[in-house]
Nucleic acid binder design. Structure first.
Lengths: 162, 162
DNA sequence: ATCGGGTAGTTGAACACTCAACAGCGACGA
DNA sequence: TCGTCGCTGTTGAGTGTTCAACTACCCGAT
């Protein structure tokens, strides 16, 4: 009664290499940002998204949607970023339920200071190690997998600051 | 004074798609295992590695090395797995500093029960969505990136149970 | 023998994320 | 007007990870 479609040996090799790479790569990214800029990668991404928004401000739920994060997670994160002086909360004028996260000048400066090291890490650990063809295929793979995970969003490109 | 090699537009698109995919895919994996088998993915992997070891037992540091985890993380994790009755700690006969993690029969049963759902999730979310060529390139990419992250290990294949 | 440096593993605090519950507000219909 | 329902955002508890000590032990050198 086992109708599970197990992985072939070749698939298993790819799978284990892939999942190990993803873990090690994520650790590498996080450690660099934590060491050089005292922020975890997820917080960096929040600052990036805010920095691209008009007025460097976004409703909490929009911010959560753009980053694929839960409202709870974002609320906790913004509280931390507020303590650091990088983000402020404002009331939403059109909807009293809402609250708006605004990137402060300090937050933008912290982001600008963190970006070169982060982008360099990404380049050295990823793009410099791949051929242009591999990069192209990686993009196709990512889109294909993402499409399968749900009726998805957050693909529209965010410009600048990697 | 900016000698940072920034990403091109095309690279940035690939990067954002890739990092979003990795996050969403990891969440997907974790949620499935947590929901169906009450364990996080990292614990599943510990059980997998133990199940392949001779006698289903490994020194803590070997286990940590094989899974790319810190000793601290592994120690906490094994404590949890011990509470669940899935792993036991034994003293190491040849080195009194050491301790040995042993997979219990219950732990093996839990792993066997969790494996089909997990493998099915991996297949549906990843392999079923890619062409054989893309899978092959994904393997190459993973090896290339992993090679760059440090004088690496943990590539030797682990057989069975995905 | 024992001293010193390195290794193995554990611990507790701090941090990040999840989950479930909650309060507050908007929108729509009776 | 008044409910009701759904949405927004926050909160606190529980879980997992990291970091920095710390203990206990092995090993090699003097």
């Amino acid at each position: 009664m086992d109708d599970t479609r197990w992985l072939t040996d070749a698939e298993r090799d790819v799978w284990r290499t892939f999942i190990t790479m993803v873990g090690a790569f994520g650790d590498h990214l996080d450690k660099q940002l934590q060491r050089d800029s005292a922020m975890p990668y997820t917080y960096y991404e929040i600052l990036v998204v805010l920095s691209h928004a008009p007025g460097r401000a976004l409703r909490m739920s929009e911010l959560a949607g753009l980053r694929g994060a839960s409202r709870s997670r974002l609320s906790h994160a913004v509280s931390r970023l507020e303590e650091a002086g990088w983000v402020e909360r404002r009331e939403c004028p059109t909807d009293k339920r809402g609250s708006i996260a605004v990137l402060t000048d300090e937050g933008f400066a912290a982001l600008a200071a963190a970006a070169p090291g982060h982008v360099t890490t990404v380049r050295e650990a990823l793009f410099d190690r791949l051929t242009p063809e591999q990069v192209a295929v990686l993009g196709q793979i990512s889109v294909a997998v993402l499409d399968g995970l749900d009726p998805d969003k957050c693909l529209p490109g965010n410009r600048e600051l990697g």
